[in-house]
Design a binder for these strands. Structure first.
Length: 783
DNA sequence: ATTAGCATCCTTTTT
DNA sequence: GGATGCTAAT
């Protein structure tokens, strides 16, 4: 077996060393003074499994980073003997920075600090051959993954209209999240795709990945799991190596990650997981709250430490958030408290539509700005990214500087992906997906026909496309023109490849992009974006300088798809999704779009039922607890969905707020826009009554009425709701109860039709005019 | 082989 | 209302 490199360059005092003893004898180290008793327990309880339940704003990261510093200071382990896993790149960067702040350069040696995916990739590269890969395997992103699946579907003659590659990708991801190899997929689920071919397609896809010497995100976990299971000696080595293991955001781990962690921690069992069950918001991508709820069973003898003292928010905000989240069942339960002021009550404002919402929030922010508040301390947190546009448009109009966080990412841009495909072809000649992407970009006269030929040959001879191309240019099978183009392309790649070791990677990249004609292509392009694209390419080349070599850069790119080089000094308001806001805090937080269907998301409700509702509520909790001093909730009575204006109903989460801690506020200068919708809420007396007052109900009924077709079948009438949870309607329109085969329905776009089949929330409908379509149940009304 | 025009899908959330 | 992917026309 392959032994691990020695890493002797890292220094940390041996446990018995002078330095360690000096530190110990100096009494309590200074960094412990900054902690409260619970945090200190989280830091000092080093041996055995520990679960730290850290509520929002309770100093979780501080506890975690101090714990690392403590381990290092006591000499219990060296930096490279600590495994510290986070969920996002953002979190691991922050952790590294903060450990560095505590222990200085020592943090540099934390080479096992990173995301589950990054660490898995690192391990996998060291032992690639044991799982049938070469050490330079490519990591495919979602886009590549779908393109590959498309090919698999095509090869199997499966209609990818009826069975879209995207849907298959989601299923496969789901299986991988649950740690299921193709053979382990439950029969019932395997059946459910393409008439029972689900698992078989999964298996074929895995085969293709191996041929391509590639893995997808899920494989990073799956393959390292397999590596550990099939090679106990390798596993034992890592078990021995990691003297202390820390896991951040434990509530977000999926089954595969849990299994991975359990394997790797069985050695010394010094595992410390930090998390908050109330902030578990990634269930949709396989996170299992159960993991954290079950911790004590999984790690017998575990100590549980609760951090409940909140340092972030004022009293009313905390009260509102706590009351909201108390509507969830299945919590471990924490009671956050603060010694601080009550502060301002969170506000609740109703507006006519989403445009007025943007207008009102824009004005409110301007007002704060005039009062001297920093825009950096203001954020707008939305449920879904399409909500952002309205704010952007409005803010551009009024000249309010803003920044969208988590928007289209640098490495997802077309030109960047193309450039990377070139580099991947240079570094990893077997990377067919990359090759395919750029064979004809810029245009070289290598179209479908040529590619078809390449594919045939590659398939027959079981070689990568690049090699197929090489052979074909030497035969007579190609017409002269494509043959020449292909030959010169191959020649280029061969030449570039000889330069890998001769030139710094950023210079090589520049050369490749120029010689391939790629930059020229954009220079010729006259569309308005082309200049920006060229800038991005320059930026890419510049970013490469910081890496030791091309391979290291490509690794970084596949795993850390982000780049925020915007280093301007101007203050900006942040616009981001609620998911993206997790872990952040702001003085003032705007929470727009609290409407049924949008938040909670109808889709989540339809697909996940009660678990989905609770997750949405946790998201609301996350949103509220981001606010330090001001939280401002908005809901609109009308919103444009799929280009059509639809009346909306205030979110049930508004009913979950404690009326005593919330203030109902009229939108600033709303009347000038003739918004009669607002006044209803202004009249609502929220002080001495709950929201379930006659006034509130009237307000809601008003929204119903605005729907135009008063109380028709478009919504289930009160009283015979399909599913009820804690007195709440789960799904405003649950398919099962509403439409049966044969029923007449009406669809806004397709018109009247007859239901042919029902599949969960999807209906197959024979429309009178539009023919047979599969539509979401929520888009049709009984008709 | 390339392009323009048309149809269709969609809209969570991310490693 | 918008992007993406396909078909049909050049």
């Amino acid at each position: 077996m392959k032994s691990l490199p020695p890493e002797i360059e890292d220094y940390a005092p041996e446990s018995g060393s002078l330095a360690a003893r000096a530190a110990a004898s100096a009494g309590r180290p200074r960094y412990l003074d900054a902690l409260n008793p619970e945090q200190r327990a989280a830091v000092e309880t080093l041996d055995g499994p520990v679960l730290v339940l850290a509520g929002a704003g309770t100093g979780k990261t501080r506890a975690l980073t101090t714990r690392i510093a403590h381990i290092l200071a006591l000499g219990k382990a060296r930096a490279y003997e600590i495994l510290a896993v986070t969920f996002t790149n953002k979190a691991s960067r922050e952790m590294r920075e903060r450990v560095e702040a505590l222990v200085g350069e020592g943090a540099q040696a934390m080479q096992w600090l990173g995301t589950f995916h990054a660490i898995s990739a690192k391990i996998l590269r060291r032992h690639a051959e044991l799982v049938g890969l070469k050490p330079n395997f490519s990591i495919l992103d979602t886009d590549d993954q779908i393109r590959l699946l498309k090919q698999v579907l095509q090869a199997e003659n499966i209609d990818d209209k009826r069975w879209p590659a995207r849907a298959l990708a989601m299923r496969i991801d789901g299986w991988k999240n649950r740690g299921l190899a193709p053979a382990q997929v439950p029969a019932a689920e395997a059946e459910s795709f393409a008439n029972g071919k689900g698992a078989a397609l999964y298996a074929l896809y895995q085969e293709r990945l191996k041929v391509l010497n590639a893995v997808d995100f899920g494989d990073l976990l799956m393959e390292s799991l397999r590596l550990f299971r099939e090679n106990p000696d390798v596993l034992a080595d890592y078990q021995r190596r990691f003297k202390y293991i820390l896991v951040d955001e434990y509530q977000d781990t999926n089954v595969a990650q849990y299994l991975w962690l359990r394997l790797i921690s069985q050695g010394r069992r010094n595992v410390c997981c930090v998390g908050d069950d109330d902030q578990s918001v990634y269930g949709w991508r396989g996170a299992e709250v159960e993991n954290i709820l079950r911790f004590e069973q999984d790690f017998p003898g575990a100590k549980i430490i609760r951090l409940e003292r909140n340092y972030r928010s004022t009293g009313h905000i905390l009260a509102a958030a706590s009351h909201l989240i108390s509507h969830n069942e299945g919590r471990l339960g924490k009671t956050l408290f603060t010694d601080g002021d009550d502060g301002d009550k969170p506000t609740l404002t109703g507006v006519w539509d989403s445009q007025e919402e943007a207008r009102a929030i824009g004005e409110d922010i301007e007002q704060l700005g005039r009062k001297g508040h920093s825009l950096e301390e203001i954020a707008i947190l939305v449920r879904a990214s399409f909500q952002m546009r309205e704010f952007e448009e409005r803010f551009v109009e009024i000249g309010l500087p803003y920044r969208v966080i988590g928007g289209p990412r640098f490495y997802e841009r077309l030109e960047i992906r193309d450039a990377l495909a070139y580099l991947r072809c240079v570094a990893q000649p077997a990377d067919d997906l990359a090759f395919e992407r750029i064979v004809n970009t810029p245009k070289r006269g290598l179209g479908d026909a040529t590619l078809q030929l390449l594919h045939e040959y590659a398939r027959r001879e079981r070689v990568p496309l690049m090699q197929a191309a090489r052979f074909l240019t030497e035969s007579e099978e190609l017409k002269p023109k494509p043959r020449g183009a292909l030959r010169s392309l191959i020649g280029d790649f061969d030449r570039w490849r000889t330069l890998i070791d001769a030139k710094p990677q950023h210079e090589l990249a520049e050369l490749v992009l120029d010689e391939s004609g790629y930059t020229e292509m954009w220079r010729q392009d006259k569309t308005p974006e082309s200049a920006g694209r060229l800038d991005n390419l320059k930026e890419l080349v510049r970013a490469m300088e910081a890496f030791p070599d091309l391979a290291a850069f490509l690794e970084h790119v596949s795993l850390v798809m982000e780049a925020d080089s915007a280093t301007d000094q101007q203050q900006r308001v942040s616009i981001m999704t609620l998911h993206g806001a997790k872990g952040l805090e702001f003085e003032t937080v705007y929470l727009p779009g609290w409407e049924e269907g949008l938040f909670p998301s109808q889709r989540t409700l339809d697909e996940q039922g009660r678990a989905g509702l609770e997750e949405e509520r946790r998201l609301a909790y996350v949103g509220l607890t981001r606010a330090k001093r001001r939280a401002k909730i908005f809901f609109a009575s009308n919103r444009r969905i799929h280009g059509l204006w639809q009346p909306t109903v205030p979110s049930r989460f508004i009913d979950n707020l404690p009326s005593g801690n919330v203030e109902v506020v009229e939108a600033p200068s709303a009347s000038q826009y003739g918004s009669y919708g607002v006044s209803r809420f202004a009249n609502l007396d929220a002080y001495d009554s709950d929201y379930a007052t006659p006034g509130w109900k009237r307000a809601k009924a008003g929204a119903d009425f605005a729907r135009g077709e008063p109380m028709r079948e478009s919504r289930p009438s009160r009283g015979k709701q399909p599913t009820t949870i804690e007195g709440e309607v789960l799904a405003r329109s649950s398919a099962a109860a509403r439409h049966k085969a044969g029923a007449r329905v009406f669809h806004l776009k397709f018109g009247p039709g007859t239901v042919a089949a029902v599949d969960g929330n999807k209906l197959t409908v024979d429309f009178d005019k539009a023919g047979r379509k599969m539509v979401l149940e929520s888009f049709v009304q009984a008709g």
